[in-house]
Write a protein that binds this DNA or RNA. Structure first.
Lengths: 196, 196
DNA sequence: AACAAATAATTAAATGACCATTTAATTTTA
DNA sequence: TAAAATTAAATGGTCATTTAATTATTTGTT
């Protein structure tokens, strides 16, 4: 009486394989065969479980979003002050579980593909709105002036995105701890400046 | 004795068409036929002029880089102080000629495709190094401390990249003037903070 | 100007890969 | 033995690229 069926195992394996294959081959070169081969299966079985390639890609993106969401909630649970919650948002974005070389590649590729795929676009918007709303809520208690607050939020959000791009681009191994440090330093500078 | 041959006209037309088609269809959906149709030609003629699809894409990226380079030199020619030169770098990145909705889409797509295409990757590295070196040179005169200077440069460069992503992502029309304002405001905050 | 070559531009159609998806089994598991 | 998992092979479609012509444009010559 196992709670884990083969179906669930394969789902998880194939999504992991998709992340890796996307990182290795890139969005517009990756094939179902390559993804399947990653776990010693065939393209037909991918179809058996996910129906279409698009559905597999959407499931993969949902998987990444779930990781982010999980890290976020974990950080929030510990945070006691608005500033601690802000740090938790940053820590979640650059958590060891999320900010890996492979996943940087994959996020950037989803960003560039999303405008042209209905399903991905929807997910993308949900995620972006979630992060914006999270940061906005934290900042509301730290910066009363709305214009200044929105500036800081916008700068931080663009900055975070940019770090992902640069990491995917450079080919250097992702350094989550360093990214957290830099991001918090940047946030410090912005907040000190606004309150001055 | 025209200096402009048909060959040059077609080159320019096809590259313009490629930018537009990439924006409309996305990197991994765009076909040579669609690009060609944009100027009322056929796929075969694209091959006649560019040899392969990859070469066309590289030529298109070189075109975008030339625009950036041109704007940059124009701004530099006017600048008299280090700070003015820095502002010129920002103004070039968000110039009306460069920071359009279409070109935002295209840059983001090149970023995501570059790691998987030798030719694009080379161009990407050249461009990134150029921008980094430009900003670094300006900042050297404003921030003596190397660590602080590198932090500011890194933050600004990630921020700039992030703004491109967000513009491509949101679907909103690109607003170059606003982007320039925000970027200069961000730079102001960072510099004031570092010198305090 | 006129007029042939010669050269450049253009394309319709053919070619050959590649790949997602389907089908029709076969094997494995429950 | 029924249901689930798996796959080899078939299908059909899409494309980049090539080929073999045809049509425009230059160029050189008288």
């Amino acid at each position: 009486m196992k709670p884990v069926r083969i179906r669930d195992i394969r789902h998880a394996e194939l999504i992991e394989a998709t992340v890796f294959a996307l990182h290795k081959q890139g969005f517009h070169k990756v094939t179902l065969s390559q993804i399947a081969k990653e776990i010693g299966a065939t393209a037909a079985s991918v179809n058996y479980y996910f129906g279409t390639k698009d559905h597999l890609l959407e499931a993969t993106m949902r998987h990444l979003m779930r990781i982010l969401q999980g890290e976020m909630q974990q950080g929030y649970a510990q945070a006691r002050t608005p500033r601690q919650r802000l740090d938790a948002v940053i820590a979640a974005n650059f958590s060891d579980a999320l900010f890996t070389t492979e996943q940087c590649s994959v996020w950037v590729q989803f960003w560039s593909a999303a405008p042209y795929a209905e399903g991905l676009s929807r997910l993308q918007n949900i995620n972006r709105a979630r992060v914006a709303s999270n940061m906005g809520a934290c900042l509301r208690e730290l910066i009363p002036d709305e214009a200044a607050r929105e500036t800081v939020r916008g700068v931080m959000q663009s900055y975070l995105d940019g770090v992902w791009i640069e990491t995917a681009q450079s080919g250097r191994k992702a350094n989550a701890a360093l990214a957290r440090n830099d991001a918090i330093m940047t946030l410090d500078m912005l907040l000190r400046q606004v309150n001055a």
